[in-house]
Simulated assay, not measured.
Amino acid sequence: MAASLLLLGTGAAHAATGTLEFSGNGERTLTNPTDGTCYKLAKSSPSGSRGYKTITNHTDKKVTWYTADNCQGDGSAVAPGETSEASGTWWPFVSIRYVKIG
C-alpha cells in the first residue's frame, strides 16, 4: 500500500511520446509535448500573427489544433499518424496557431 501511495503522490506530468511536425510559414517540431498544455505556435509577421498550414502527428496521443488564442473555441483533432491542413484556400488567414495534447 505504501508503494501505491508513493506513485499517486508523484504528480508527474504525462507527455505524448514522439513529435508533432508543422509546415507552411517555416518548419517547426515539438518533441514529447506535455498532456493538457496549450502550445502557442503563431509567429509575428508584418501582416499580423501567422500560424502553420499543416500538422503531422507522430505521437502516441490525439492532438487538437486551434485557430483561436489560447486553445479556445472549436478545434480540429488529429489522431496519431495523421496529417491535418488548416485550409487549402484560406491559408494564411486560417492557420494552425495553437495546439493542445490529449
Rank of each mutant, 00 (worst) to 15 (best):
M1R: 15
A2Y: 12
A3K: 10
S4W: 12
L5Q: 09
L6D: 10
L6T: 14
L7C: 08
L7Q: 10
L8G: 13
L8C: 13
G9E: 13
T10F: 09
T10E: 13
A12S: 14
A12E: 09
A13T: 14
A16G: 08
T17Q: 06
T17C: 05
T19Y: 01
L20G: 13
E21V: 12
F22I: 08
N25W: 00
N25A: 11
G26I: 09
R28G: 01
R28I: 00
N32Y: 14
T34Q: 15
T34H: 12
D35N: 12
T37E: 13
T37C: 03
C38Y: 02
C38K: 11
C38R: 08
A42M: 07
S44Q: 05
S44K: 04
P46A: 00
S47K: 10
R50K: 12
G51E: 00
G51K: 04
Y52E: 06
Y52V: 10
K53N: 08
T54V: 04
I55P: 05
I55F: 12
I55N: 13
I55D: 04
T56V: 03
T56N: 07
H58M: 03
K61R: 06
K61M: 03
K61Y: 02
K62R: 12
W65E: 02
T67G: 15
T67Q: 11
A68N: 14
D69A: 12
D74L: 08
G75A: 10
S76K: 07
A77D: 01
A77R: 06
A79C: 11
A79V: 03
A79W: 07
P80I: 01
P80F: 07
G81R: 05
E82L: 02
E82Q: 15
E82C: 02
E82F: 04
T83R: 09
T83L: 04
S84W: 00
A86V: 06
A86G: 09
A86F: 01
S87T: 00
T89Y: 07
T89H: 04
T89P: 02
W90Q: 14
P92T: 04
F93S: 11
F93W: 05
V94S: 15
V94L: 04
I96Y: 08
Y98C: 03
Y98N: 02
Y98S: 04
I101A: 05
